[in-house]
Design a protein around this nucleic acid. Structure first.
Length: 463
RNA sequence: GCACGUGUAGCUAAGUUGGUCAAAGCAAGGGUCUGCAAAACCCUUAAUCGUCGGUUCGACUCCGACCACGUGCUCCA
């Protein structure tokens, strides 16, 4: 039974979807003003692993993610570049998806852009209007928080009342109450706008998620995800907009992913503590190791990202790949052993138990390591049997379906020239002609083929 | 200032309805294999569980204080 920590109730709850086998989930997506950074990807990989595990558990998943392609930052950047807003945002949406692919993250079932849903937002504002939850001031439409009783139920009482000394009128729009937020911003010079029933303007930050989530998932659905920083005000306001319009519970489980830190401190562009995916791949790190790093710490813990740690994870994923390769290639007698099959069963239980416990990936990985070590011993002592090998491969395959940490395994084929050289070298070695043997090894190394001599012959791999 | 969270071996970290475990990975040391390598594998080392008190027969796990770090209260994954 999967248990999840629900921000709304502030405790761990057993998960069960509204419709018996179908999970409906909304994940807050990127604001496409620039490249996403690894902090963003920590979250997106959490969504990936979470989604994969739901499928692993046998659920059907409808996962919608938004692309925020209209806000202060996207406007600012596109103006700086002197290109149209949507040209700018299309470009960075594409980069975002490329990065997801690179990290082996599955795409959500639906990816939707805010600017494609202006009508839905206006309709939602109308519904709020009808319920007396809005007011207009100088062409902008505001949400009147005092008229919504449940305001604050997601983030807690902490925002009730004025926050002394901190709340200034940062927004250049006028509000009745400092806590009110804008639904529709009146058009300003130099900004894109849409002509609507509420005049020319552009959407406020929160309205897109309410409108799109309800359009694709219904007025009430199962899971809503985001980074912890979104709990307030974004999700609190989203909830207020949605429930204020429908009178129904908007979301049952609110799930929030913790932030990532670099060297124990907050990311900071100014102090050069900041990485995009490209920054890291340029330094030679593999996307797989980056994925492993970001996935290996449970999502509700702050993740301390360090380059030293990443180097370690680089080694780790390489060992995982070597291990799987070794297992594939191991030659086994038929049959199975009671001990190994018990260990495999245990590992599977431990893995699922860990993941069921609010997606404890760290503990799940421990289960993998323990079995890995045991299987390795069996291979070394040539005591691994065929059925156990199959069961083990099956288990690691299932793990990989969820965590995606083994990378691709493909049987590569060498061209015959290289094949022949390897043969020739074997013969040379047999005749103790080591000069020739080393010559061939050196030559192949230059071709990117690394040879490894084993007692069963010569193995090779690409550098 | 207010609110919340974290502090476990060199590093990344799991674990706590209080009484077997203080997982696992990386690093480090040793070994197996090899003509030599490389890779891989095996073994070992290491934590008074932030500090100081309290509760208890017994606390890493509960309570209090303190220190450090982080986050939110403003745009943010």
């Amino acid at each position: 039974m999967l248990k999840l920590f629900n921000t709304l109730t502030h405790r761990q709850e057993e998960f069960s979807p509204q419709e018996n086998n179908l999970v409906k989930m909304y994940s807050c997506g990127p604001t496409v003003y620039d490249f996403a950074h690894i902090g963003n990807f920590r979250y997106f990989l959490f969504i990936d692993v979470f989604s994969r595990y739901l499928k692993y558990k046998g659920y059907k998943l409808l996962n919608v993610m938004n692309i925020t392609d209209i806000d202060d930052k996207t406007i600012k950047r596109s103006n700086e570049r002197g290109i149209a807003l949507n040209e700018h945002t299309k470009e960075f949406t594409a980069k975002f998806l490329e990065d997801l692919d690179l990290l082996g993250a599955e795409h959500p079932s639906k990816i939707v852009a805010a600017t494609d849903h202006i009508n839905e937002m206006i309709d939602l504002i109308k519904a709020l209007d009808k319920n007396g939850l809005t007011y207009i001031n100088e062409g902008s439409v505001y949400y009147r928080i005092s008229a919504f009783n449940d305001y604050g139920k997601l983030s807690g009482a902490k925002i009730s009342g004025n926050i002394s000394g901190k709340r200034v009128n940062v927004d250049e729009y006028d509000k009745e109450d400092a806590r009110d937020f804008v639904l529709w911003k009146a058009a300003k010079e130099g900004e894109p706008f849409w002509d609507t029933a509420y005049g020319a303007g552009r959407p406020g930050w929160h309205i897109e998620c309410s409108a799109m989530a309800m359009k694709y998932l219904g007025e009430s659905f199962d899971i809503h995800c985001g980074g912890v920083d979104l709990v307030f005000p974004h999700h609190e306001n989203e909830l207020a907009q949605s429930e204020g319009a429908t009178g129904k519970q908007f979301v049952k489980y609110w799930i929030h992913c913790e932030h990532l830190m670099i060297d124990g401190q907050k990311m900071s562009k100014r102090e050069n503590r900041f990485f995009t995916l490209r920054d890291l791949t340029k330094q030679g790190f593999s996307p797989l190791a980056i994925r492993y790093s970001l996935v290996s710490v449970p999502y509700r813990k702050q993740l301390n990202f360090t380059l030293d740690g990443l180097r370690g994870d680089e080694t780790r994923v390489k060992k995982l790949q070597d291990f799987r390769r070794r297992l594939y290639k191991s030659k086994c007698e038929s049959g199975s052993s009671a001990q190994i099959s018990y260990s495999i069963k245990k590992a599977k239980e431990a893995f699922e138990e860990a993941m069921d416990d609010d997606l404890n990936t760290s503990s799940a990985l421990a289960a993998v390591s323990i079995l890995e070590s045991e299987i390795n011993k069996a291979i070394s002592s040539e005591s691994l049997l065929e059925d156990d090998k199959k069961a083990a491969l099956d288990f690691f395959g299932k793990v990989d379906l969820v965590l995606g940490i083994f990378g691709e395994y493909k049987e590569e084929i060498l061209d015959t020239e290289i094949q022949n050289l390897i043969e020739e070298r074997l013969i040379a070695r047999k005749n103790k002609n080591f000069a020739r043997s080393d010559e061939i090894r050196k030559y192949l190394a230059e071709q990117g083929i690394i040879l490894q001599d084993t007692k069963d012959g010569t193995d090779w791999r690409r550098a």
